[in-house]
Write a protein that binds this DNA or RNA. Structure first.
Lengths: 199, 199
DNA sequence: GTCTATAATCTGATAGAC
DNA sequence: GTCTATCAGATTATAGAC
């Protein structure tokens, strides 16, 4: 059984991600939860406080889901093909995501040009942290001799950029109701091609 | 001498791109232009009409700036190095941009998750059209023997994704006031690396 | 914890004088 | 073309009863 506060939280994720923070009013939110506007203020002091709670949730979830170095090295022992390793790791990564992360990431991307906190987070984490994590993976593959010698830092950056481009397109296509399986195949195709080129 | 309508148009580009469409009110706009709110309605029937005028302006500017096939082939004759060709073409591309295109593209990216018109445009043009244009360039390089045999379609897609990731990061960094020259060098570095890998 | 009632402000937009 | 005046509705938020 969910508390009212949790219901508000989840409703806010839903409405902020679909209508934007400014486009979803406290009235909309109260109606969606099934309570009166004033009752929202018993649980959260303001509208911004709800957004901040969501952002904080996302930031923690993101940190936890970033692959750990030792775990990566353990996993690497079981693979002799870099593509298989990469695709398996990606599936594991998605499995580890806390609930609602996709919708919350949508809020981040919605607000990144308007909200300083969102912008800083996207820059520091979606770009910098993901690049660092990718470097670890590539270095692991390199040390094991599964990919050829290369500029790990530069390739990690290119990979992260490519994934972000793909990610944005994916989110837009999903809004258009495009078949999720088609999108998944596209992702697999591009990742396979990218890693294959490093062999 | 600019007409009031032009002043409103440019002010709207500025405010919509920095505060978001919903975050910039007609009151803000009137104040920025230096007229009264009601006077705005002499020039535009509604707030959405202003946004639509901006989007239309962007769409036309975008279409015009996409490199033409014959022009590309002419340009290609002067180059024997794919990287030099690519970087030169990129500079030419930016030179051809109509004014305010960077700010207007910011509006597009701001609203792409909220506004159907923006989303459709980003998907069809920023992804599909740019991919097609990139294919033409790559095929030209391939025909001339300047790059090795490859899957032109797939590589064009990867290039476009990478550019979009880079573009988003660039826009976020600019909001943080990061040195533009640093960003330009990063762009050159990545494009060089990408095209170099195709030789 | 949830409600009713309401405040104070902001929103996009219109009517009509000059 | 620009102004003053104003509207009707939405916005976030608070006070106080139950």
């Amino acid at each position: 059984m969910q508390s009212t506060k949790e219901l508000i939280f989840e409703s806010a994720i839903k409405l902020f991600s679909t209508r934007g923070y400014q486009g979803a009013s406290m009235r909309d939110l109260a109606k969606d939860v099934g309570i009166k506007e004033s009752s929202l203020y018993y649980h959260y002091p303001s509208k911004t406080a709800i957004l901040e709670a969501i952002l904080e949730y996302y930031m923690e979830g993101f940190k936890e889901s970033v692959p750990d170095k030792s775990v990566t090295e353990d996993l690497l022992k079981n693979f002799n093909d870099p593509v298989e390793f990469w695709l398996f790791g990606m599936v594991e990564y998605f499995k580890r995501q806390p609930p609602h992360m996709e919708a919350v990431a949508n809020i981040m991307l919605n607000e990144m040009f308007l909200n300083n906190q969102c912008r800083t987070f996207v820059l520091q984490n979606m770009f910098t942290v993901q690049k660092a994590a990718t470097e670890v993976l590539l270095q692991g593959l390199l040390d094991k001799g599964l990919i050829k010698d290369c500029d790990v830092s530069l390739i990690a950056e290119q990979y992260v950029y490519m994934i972000h481009g793909l990610d944005i397109e994916t989110r837009l296509l999903k809004k258009d109701g495009i078949d999720e399986d088609f999108i998944r195949q596209k992702l697999i195709k591009h990742i396979t091609f990218f890693i294959e080129g490093l062999k």
